[in-house]
Amino acid sequence: MKSSVLKVSHLAKKIKKLQIIHDVSFDIREGEILGFLGPNGSGKTTTLRMIVGLSKPTGGDVTICGHSLKTDYVKAMSNVGCIIEGPDLYGYMSGYKNLELLANMSEGVTKQDIDDAVTLVGMEKRIHDKVDVYSMGMKQRVGLAQALIHKPRLLILDEPTNGLDPQGIHEFREIVKKLARETGISVLVSSHLISEVQLMCDRVSIINKGRIIKNASVEELVSTGQVVWTVDQPLKAQTFLKERFALDTVLEHQTLTALVGVDRLPGINRTLVEEGFKITYVDNKKQTLENLFLSLTDNKSIQ
């Protein structure tokens, strides 16, 4: 098993007697993209702020690449690059100057590293313009470059697609995925958008009201073990499946849904075809994160 790049254990935060974060624990392994999912105000950003040292936890600890944030701040932080709540840069200088400035703050960042980061985010053409004239998408790219210049092993992105147009969201997502694939960097990305997490992440931690309510792989969360058939004679098929395979199916608009192990599916399908049913569609029924999320968070609306 790969080592943990980030280990968050029993993190807690209390502000003025109000417990905002309760005992949050999770970890990220090398090369993994972890989605941090929760509705607005659930404590996502607060947790991320504590992970990157912007605010101090009142309990628990964060360990980055084996270095505790409490006792070994500098070493821990040298492995982190982040964008917290929007890519805020110095507007009165160029994107490149911003990067140079921030590169100066880390040991051993060369000009080549800066150029590489710029190339990676595809900002070569406009990097010498003033940040003030950038579009949101360009800022987000420079923001990402800023988080990467010192070659961190952990990238933390807080709501990275907020304020981007669909095209921008797509591009940004591709950059991050490519990055994780090619450099093996671990990514922690928070979002209140299920689709985004689903498209980018390997695993997901769901947070609500300051508590982690589920840690799982995206596959785990998504697969329900149910199979959906769309057949021409659903009523007849329902009876047939009941008699032949002892399957309890639910009939809903021409589709039948049943809890079936994937291993039994080929046999069942063949039999159905042999009996003369016309199957137009068979699929493992995927549970959308929306549904899951709603069930986990007391059906509270998330958007």
């Binding site: 932080m77 805020d88 840069l89 507007g91 921030l102 703050m105 880390s106």
Partner: peptide, 14 residues
């Protein structure tokens, strides 16, 4: 107020 303090304080510098 420009919120740039975030990129300043998330570096490996005390």
């Amino acid at each position: 107020s420009n919120r740039t303090v975030k990129i300043l304080l998330t570096r490996a510098v005390p």
